[in-house]
């Protein structure tokens, strides 16, 4: 429940309960059957916590993309039913765009136009954000997402899950220049990412080069720390550099960063340094709004203000839809 002034009245996440336990906190979103069980209690809880009744609402917002089709359909069906029963307008929200809107909520003021980066386990996407609801796709990863690379490298190095915090912690005691890992596309103007080769380069350093008989150095705590620090440095070099390139290419002076990897302290520091040099303002979503949450659905107020009301025959779009670049005037 979010007020028009973006005050969050309640923000209920189903994965905090028994569902979370069943899936060990790893993949709570997969079971559409579990979604069916949870959706009505979650709606009730959100109303109760906000102390709001259904007939006091102004609109119903629902995520229609991207995601798993089963889970999206459960949410959409519930939202359509509520909209039909109450006569309230239905507003369709893009989950990735909502991640960037979390920065607007944190700022408490208009922060557009801006460059936006959503960087998580599933996504590494750059946008030119012309306005609060107008996001132009600039580029994404062509293989692994940045957060996925952190998790997989953590596994290669024998570090715990989730990999992001584990790598960051291990890197504190390591030398970021111990290994010169690849920084893919770093020198190229293209606004795309590739982290699969970096992952494989760490793998070869940790476990040996395939087909080679050379002995592999023992994976001591110091070697793990050096590998973690060198990996993190390479990944962050590319992420920060592509943000800088996007700011310059698009002549923007604000950078918005959302998604789970934005919780990485070293990443935040590197972004702050770069934005300081570029004289750009940096907006990073607060930690609780970096991960998946309902409050960032506040973007629906912007859509509603523009009259972007969805029809009741609305369908879900499971894959990532890239809006075509606007034709130059």
């Amino acid at each position: 429940m979010i007020r028009r002034d973006l005050t969050v009245l309640s923000n209920v996440v189903a994965s905090q309960n028994e569902l979370h336990e069943r899936f060990g906190g790893v993949v709570p979103e997969i079971a559409s059957r579990a979604h069916v069980r949870c959706i009505l209690p979650v709606i009730d809880e959100a109303l109760r916590k906000a102390n709001v009744k259904l007939n006091e609402l102004s609109a119903i917002a629902v995520v229609t993309q991207p995601g798993l089709v089963g889970s999206l359909l459960v949410g959409l069906t519930a939202a359509k039913t509520l909209a039909l029963a109450t006569g309230l307008p239905l507003v369709a929200v893009n989950h990735i765009e909502a991640h960037l809107y979390a920065c607007r909520m944190q700022a408490g003021r208009d922060i557009f136009p801006a460059i936006g980066l959503v960087v998580s386990g599933g996504h590494t996407n750059l946008y030119d954000c012309h306005g609060p609801t107008d996001f132009e796709w600039l580029g994404a990863t062509i293989d692994d997402a940045a957060g996925e690379a952190f998790d997989k490298v953590a596994q290669i190095l024998g570090l715990p899950y989730p990999g992001g915090p584990a790598i960051e912690q291990a890197a504190l005691h390591g030398d970021p220049q111990a290994f010169n890992f690849p920084r893919v596309f770093l020198k190229e103007p293209r606004l795309e990412f590739s982290f699969s080769g970096l992952k494989t380069a760490v793998l070869y350093k940790a476990t040996g080069i395939p087909g080679s008989r050379d002995p592999v150095p023992e994976l001591t705590p110091q070697r793990v720390a050096d590998l973690a620090a060198s990996f993190q440095a390479a990944a962050l070099d590319v992420l920060v550099s592509k943000c800088r390139k996007a700011l310059r290419q698009r002549d923007r002076t604000r950078l918005l960063v959302g998604g789970g990897v934005a919780a990485n302290g070293a990443f935040r520091q590197r972004l702050e340094e770069m934005c300081c040099r570029q004289r750009a303002e940096l907006f990073i979503a607060p930690r609780e709004m970096c991960t998946d949450n309902a409050a960032m659905g506040a973007i629906a107020w912007e859509l509603l203000a523009q009259g972007q009301i969805a029809p009741l025959d609305l369908d879900v779009t499971p894959g990532l839809v890239r809006k075509p670049k606007p034709t130059p005037v």
Partner: peptide, 16 residues
């Protein structure tokens, strides 16, 4: 579209 084909480790399923 080659720019759509990437790792589904986190999103679990992708359709092209």
């Amino acid at each position: 579209d080659p720019s759509c084909v990437n790792s589904p480790t986190f999103v679990l399923i992708q359709e092209y």
